Amino acid sequence: MRVRAAGTADSDAVYGILTNVGARTIVVHGTTYDAATLPALVAEHDGRIIGVLTYNLVDGELEVVSLHAVDQRRGAGTALLDAAAAVARQAGARRLWLITTNDNLDALRFYQRRGMRLVAVAPGAVDAAREIKRSIPRTGDYGIPLHDELELELLIS
């Protein structure tokens, strides 16, 4: 597997992955992103893109806006997160951070096992985001009511 910065030749594949998982428009912490327009890293295997991470680098912080592996549990997510940390380090960023939701137990496990720490909870933030992006469901993974944003971070040294 190889991870690299996405180029213009990858636009269709990145767009396709983001669209297929419903992650093209992302509403978090009161901000709406078109993930297809953000800088991206791609993981590829045998010439096929198997994962995409989009990010926003601002004010010495790298926010992971989306992370999607086409085939889970094959290392693409870990490789993409490691590459994002390297981008943050190269840019002199002091932290890498992201938002997930209170129902996303698999993501919480994934990120915490890779050194990220839970640093904030925004009660009702998903309810507010649902006013902007009406397709956000009321019930999330594992039948858990979907209401809150959880912020995780990895300090970059």
Rank of each mutant, 00 (worst) to 15 (best):
Val87Gly: 02
Val42Ala: 13
Ala23Gly: 13
Asp82Ile: 03
Asp10Cys: 09
Ala43Gln: 04
Arg113Asp: 14
Val119Cys: 13
Ala120Cys: 10
Ala93Ser: 14
Ala76Gln: 06
Leu154Gly: 06
Glu131Gln: 15
Ala13Thr: 05
Gln90Trp: 00
Thr139Trp: 10
Glu151Ser: 12
Leu154Trp: 04
Thr19Glu: 15
Ile136Trp: 06
Leu81Phe: 05
Asp103Ser: 10
Glu44Pro: 13
Gly140Phe: 02
Ile26Thr: 07
Asp12His: 14
Ile26Ser: 08
Val87Trp: 07
Arg113His: 15
Gly60Ala: 03
Asp106Ala: 15
Asp71Gln: 08
Thr8His: 14
Ala23Cys: 11
Lys133Gln: 14
Arg130Asn: 12
Leu108Gly: 09
Ile144Val: 04
Ser66Ile: 02
Gly16Trp: 00
Leu118Arg: 12
Pro123Val: 00
Ala40Cys: 09
Leu57Ala: 07
Tyr55Ser: 00
Ala107His: 05
Val70Met: 00
Gly92Ala: 09
Gly47Ile: 01
Asp71Met: 05
Ala88Phe: 03
Arg117Val: 15
Thr25Val: 12
Thr8Leu: 13
Pro137Glu: 02
Gln72Ile: 13
Thr54Ser: 05
Asn56Cys: 09
Leu98Thr: 08
Asp46Gly: 12
Gly92His: 12
Ile132Tyr: 08
Arg117Phe: 11
Glu131Met: 11
Asp148Leu: 01
Leu108Tyr: 06
Ala125Ser: 11
Leu150Phe: 13
Ala6Phe: 06
Ala84Pro: 00
Leu98Gly: 07
Gly16Met: 02
Leu62Lys: 05
Gln112Ile: 08
Pro39Lys: 09
Tyr111Lys: 08
Gln90Val: 04
Arg48Pro: 03
Leu150Lys: 13
Gly22Val: 07
Gly140Gln: 04
Ala43Trp: 05
Ala6Asp: 08
Thr19Arg: 15
Ile49Ser: 11
Leu80Asn: 05
Ala125Gly: 07
Thr8Gly: 12
Asn102Gly: 05
Ala85Trp: 02
Ala9Asp: 15
Trp97Lys: 13
Asn20Phe: 03
Ser11Ile: 06
Asp46Met: 01
Ser157Phe: 07
Val58Cys: 08
Gly115Gln: 06
